[in-house]
């Protein structure tokens, strides 16, 4: 039986979809069968980030309502053959997903994949609760920024109370993925440090993704960053995070706080 991961955050725009695509691709690149599932009904984007937007015929709701078979709706990645996408519906009402429908589809996915990675919509409404409901593991995506940390805290509370695991008296495995981290700003005291966020949220850290121009470039092209810029720091950080999720003990190094003299002199990016 596969393991179900929910990628969640509460706040929008922190990198859930980017992280879902990158972690899903990184897991699939190790040869495991992976399905990434978009739960953002009405605002789907995982298809776009994966470059599969023109290949969506049937979606999650079609399968959940029995209008299509799972195999008809699954879209196989053209680059990594063990990576599949189940797209969200772009047209239907978000109330079209029911607890029972989602449970059945997740159950079918677990039976044929090693990993099912669920991309949660932002917010704490029905869609976000459904995305986390049947998960075994949660990746809480957080930026080192006050509103994101606050919303992450709220989401952690929901993971501990509103998931099937929590209701059954056990705990969901929770991991913090710190994204858009800038070690230089943090070193200057302009940005919360990794230790600050960890102390406040007190869940284990699975990865630190440095702020990177490659992320936008990858989404422009429609490829997960691990495929498009595999050697970049952000891609490496995602690959390592994926290995940690798979249970491999990969040491987590704090991103370097030193910059080459040249880039220190001229700056690296516009904020």
């Amino acid at each position: 039986m596969g393991n179900v991961i929910v990628v969640t955050s509460g706040k929008g725009g922190v990198g859930k979809t980017t992280s879902t695509a990158a972690i899903g691709a990184a897991l699939a690149e190790t040869g495991k069968r992976v399905c990434v599932v978009d739960f953002d009904v009405g605002l789907r984007n995982l298809d776009l980030v994966l470059g599969a937007e023109r290949r969506v015929v049937y979606d999650f709701i079609n399968v959940a309502q029995g209008d299509a078979k799972l195999n008809q709706a699954l879209i196989r990645d053209k680059r990594v053959e063990t990576l599949y996408l189940l797209a969200a519906s772009q047209t239907r009402d978000k109330d079209a997903l029911t607890d029972e429908g989602v449970e059945r589809v997740i159950g079918e996915l677990k039976a044929s994949f090693d990993w099912v990675v669920c991309d949660s919509p932002a917010g704490i409404e029905r869609g976000a609760l459904l995305a986390m409901r049947f998960a075994d593991t949660a990746v809480v995506v957080c930026n080192p920024e006050v509103s994101s940390v606050r919303d992450s805290d709220r989401i952690i509370g929901l993971l501990d109370s509103r998931t099937r695991r929590a209701e059954g008296g056990s705990r969901i495995d929770k991991h913090l993925l710190l994204t858009r981290f800038d070690p230089n700003r943090s070193a200057r005291g302009e940005m919360l440090s990794v230790a600050d966020v960890l102390e406040i949220l007190s869940i284990p850290l699975v990865g630190i993704i440095p702020e990177s121009e490659e992320i936008l470039r990858a989404s422009n092209i429609g490829a997960p960053i691990t495929m498009n810029a595999g050697a970049s720091l952000a891609a490496k950080a995602y690959k390592e995070a994926a290995r940690r999720l798979a249970g491999e003990p990969v040491p987590l190094a704090m991103p370097s706080e030193k910059k080459p003299f040249f880039s220190r002199l001229f700056g690296r990016r516009a904020a």
């Binding site: 920024e145 006050v146 200057r188 005291g189 302009e190 940005m191 919360l192 440090s193 600050d196 406040i200």
Partner: peptide
């Protein structure tokens, strides 16, 4: 402008 992170924390 420096050191606003401790305030955030």
């Amino acid at each position: 402008a420096r050191g606003s992170a401790p305030v955030a924390r």
